[in-house]
């Protein structure tokens, strides 16, 4: 059954919102046909998609990270490329290069051969297996939505999503991503092991010879419309203030710092963290049928939005304190509003 919702007449805001909900639900339904369990991961991936950000999925091999991204590429009716990062991958392999080509007239000239980055949806598989030099090739593309190759600046077509996967950095043959690049990811999603029931379902689906078909439910233009709609969702000032206070609480050695940040963090979140919190909150509010962002939306987005933006110090690493622990504690420490504390 096809849930395609594009090619419709111009809609008013209410219809637009309803369309968003339908699309969101359709995407979820299609993805869960392939991905067993991992509901939160799917949700976060979709939030990042509608928020216009890139996603980094981290997990040990074989947990379905690539499958999730590939499925998402399948349900979106947009050009999709996969780049397998390896230690010998060069930046030109990603961005493209100038090749000597013979024209119809027999003349030879340099022509730019586009790399796989020139697509709407990029699957950067095992991104941390590439060398830092190659990883850095992604920086400009991810933030500026453009690449500089062969001395020319080339714009990438919007929407442009990078969905990267990486293995835990303590594994063999990995190069940790630089902080600057990590900060460019909207969400960092941790993929954990499936539960027993989920694993059973995975076995059932993959060992019986049945093949699951997924439908394309969203085209480029509709996605752009919905992304625009997301940004219109109103956010109350005290909710924005909460997001700001959460981010400020991660800045160690400042007046606003939470005690745990002072103890275990070397660097706190960048302003991108606050932007992410608000954008993610807006998507979540719309997805849940609301017209406004709530504190709960901000709190739900806090872990994936901030965990890769906090740099723990040596003490935290020595004690095995993860950024997830720190964020959870900050969420407990920072009150939503002063009045609610009174109440």
């Amino acid at each position: 059954m096809c849930f395609v919702v594009w090619n419709q007449k111009p809609m008013n805001t209410e219809q637009h919102i309803q369309s968003f909900r339908n699309t969101y639900a359709a995407l979820q339904n299609e993805i869960v046909k392939v991905i067993v369990g991992h509901t939160a991961i799917v949700e976060h991936t979709l939030i990042a998609l509608f928020g216009g950000g890139h996603v980094l999925l981290e997990g040990v091999p074989g947990l379905g990270k690539t499958l999730l991204i590939r499925t998402l590429g399948e349900v979106l009716d947009m050009p999709f490329n996969r780049i397998q990062f390896t230690p010998d991958l060069m930046p030109a392999d990603i961005l493209g290069t100038n090749l000597v080509m013979e024209t119809d007239t027999g003349r030879r000239e340099f022509q730019f051969q586009r790399g796989p980055i020139f697509a709407h949806l990029i699957l950067a598989d095992e991104i941390n297996r590439a060398t830092p030099k190659t990883q850095s090739a992604m920086l400009e593309a991810m933030q500026e939505k453009q690449v500089t190759a062969g001395g020319e600046l080339r714009k990438l077509t919007e929407p442009f999503f990078v969905m990267a996967t990486q293995n835990p950095i303590d594994q063999e043959g990995t190069y940790p991503l630089p902080e600057a690049q990590l900060d460019r990811f909207f969400f960092k999603i941790l993929v954990g092991y499936p539960s027993a029931a989920d694993l059973n379902e995975v076995i059932n689906r993959t060992t019986t010879g049945t093949k699951t078909e997924v439908n394309k439910v969203l085209d480029r233009d509709t996605l752009m419309d919905l992304m625009k709609l997301v940004r219109e969702v109103p956010v109350a000032s005290h909710v924005k203030d909460y997001a700001v206070r959460l981010v400020l609480a991660t800045h160690p050695k400042t007046d606003t710092a939470a005690p745990i940040a002072n103890q275990y963090l070397r660097f706190g979140s960048s302003p991108r963290g606050a932007q992410t919190l608000i954008l993610a909150g807006k998507v979540r509010a719309l997805a849940q049928g609301r017209f406004n962002v709530s504190f709960e939306d901000i709190q739900a987005a806090a872990l994936p939005a901030l965990r890769h933006r906090l740099i723990p110090n040596f003490e935290a690493e020595a004690e095995g304190i993860t950024t997830d622990h720190i964020i959870a504690q900050i969420l407990r420490d920072v009150p939503v509003t002063a009045e609610m504390v009174d109440a």
């Binding site: 209410e14 219109e232 109103p234 109350a236 909710v239 509010a285 406004n292 709530s294 504190f295 939306d297």
Partner: peptide, 22 residues
Amino acid sequence: KERLSTALEVSSQPSGSTWNGL
């Protein structure tokens, strides 16, 4: 889920937006 507080806040802003009514 902050419906009331957001509503009060958006009502104080210049009207005309469909979102305010919603």
